[in-house]
Computed example of a mutant assay.
Amino acid sequence: MKLAHLILTHNHPDHLKRLIQRLTYGDDVIFIHVDKKVDITTFHNLISNKNVFFIKNRTSIDWGAFNIVKATLKSFQEILHSGTEYQYINLLSGSDYPLQMPVTIHQFLTDHPGKAFMNYRFIYDDWQEAIPRINEYHLNNYQFPGRYKVQKIMNRLLPTRTMPYGLVPVGRSQWFTIPTECVKYILEYWATHPALRRFTRLTWAPDEFIFQTILYNSEYRHILINNDLRLIDWSEGKASPKTFTLKDKDQLLSSDKLFARKFDSKNCPEILDCLDKKLISVPQVSPV
C-alpha cells in the first residue's frame, strides 16, 4: 500500500522537518502546500528527501476563509496527476505529529480496507454552533475595506442561506484520512456542481464541513467512519484546539490515535522528544 501525506503549512519549517522524518516510510510520499504568502525558500532544505514534493500551484490562505478549501482541492489535483497511484491520502497540518510508527499506521489502514476516516457531526442536530456558517453570508474570503459592514447588511436584507442541491451538511474537523477514490469523487463533484462552489465561497470555515458533506451525501456514505484518527483537545473552549505540552505526555503516549494536533516545537520541543523516543524505540519492518 502506498500512502500520500498532504501537509498544509505556513510556518515552523523545523517542526515540519521533524514531522517529515517521522512520516517517511517505504514508498509513501509527502506533499507540502506552503501558504503562498510565505517565502517558500525557508522550506527548501526539506526537499533533500526524494519522497517529499512541494505543491506547485500554491494558494494564499486566511484563517476561516474559503481559500483553504481551494488550496486543498488544488493540492489533491496535483497528487492525482503526479503519475503514481496511492491507496490513501492523509491530510495533515504543519503543526501535527504522529503518535504511532508508520508501520502501525499502514497496518491499521490495511486492516480497514476502503474505509474513510473523518469526523462528521450533523450540523443542524449535534453541531448547532456551526449553523451560522451555513445560514449566514460571510465575506472573510474577500479583502476590502468595510467588508464586515457589508456582510452585516447582506445578512439583514438577504434570505437565509441553505445548502444547495438538498445536501445534508455534516462536519467538524478538517483533517482526515480517506481512500484516493474518495478524493477523486470530491474533485469530480466539485467540478460539476457550480452552485456548491458559489455557496462555499460565502461560508465561514468551510474546510471543516465541505469534504464530509460531499461524501456523506454520496454512495460513499457507507464507508465513512466517524473518526478522524487524531487526538485533538478542545477542552479550552477556544476557536483553536489546545497546544500539547509536557503536561500531556501520558495522554499522548497512551493514545491509540494515529496522529495528534497541535504542537509548538519552538516553545516546547521536549514533548516531541518524548514522542520520538516511542516512535524510534522499535525497529520498523519495511513494507513488501
Rank of each mutant, 00 (worst) to 15 (best):
N135I: 07
K257P: 00
P283H: 10
A130P: 00
F117W: 15
V38H: 00
K50C: 04
P132V: 13
I232K: 09
Y220N: 04
R261T: 05
V285K: 13
N49D: 14
L3H: 11
L73P: 02
K2W: 03
L3A: 00
L231F: 13
G94V: 06
P283A: 12
E78L: 06
R201M: 13
K115W: 11
S95E: 12
A4K: 08
K277C: 04
P145T: 11
Q251D: 06
N119R: 14
G64V: 10
L23H: 01
I40T: 10
L73V: 02
S60H: 06
E136L: 14
F144M: 08
F176V: 03
L99A: 05
K249T: 13
V29S: 08
Q143P: 00
D233V: 12
L246W: 00
D62A: 13
E129K: 10
T104F: 00
M101Q: 15
S254G: 14
K115L: 15
Y220L: 06
T200K: 05
W234Y: 12
C274T: 07
A239N: 08
E270N: 11
A65D: 09
N267S: 15
G114I: 10
E219W: 05
D35F: 09
V52I: 15
N51A: 02
T42K: 13
S60A: 14
F259L: 02
R18I: 01
K70G: 00
K249L: 01
A65I: 05
T41D: 13
L275H: 04
D233G: 10
L99T: 08
A130H: 10
K70M: 03
H15F: 04
L99E: 07
H81I: 01
Q151N: 06
L253T: 02
Q212C: 03
S82L: 01
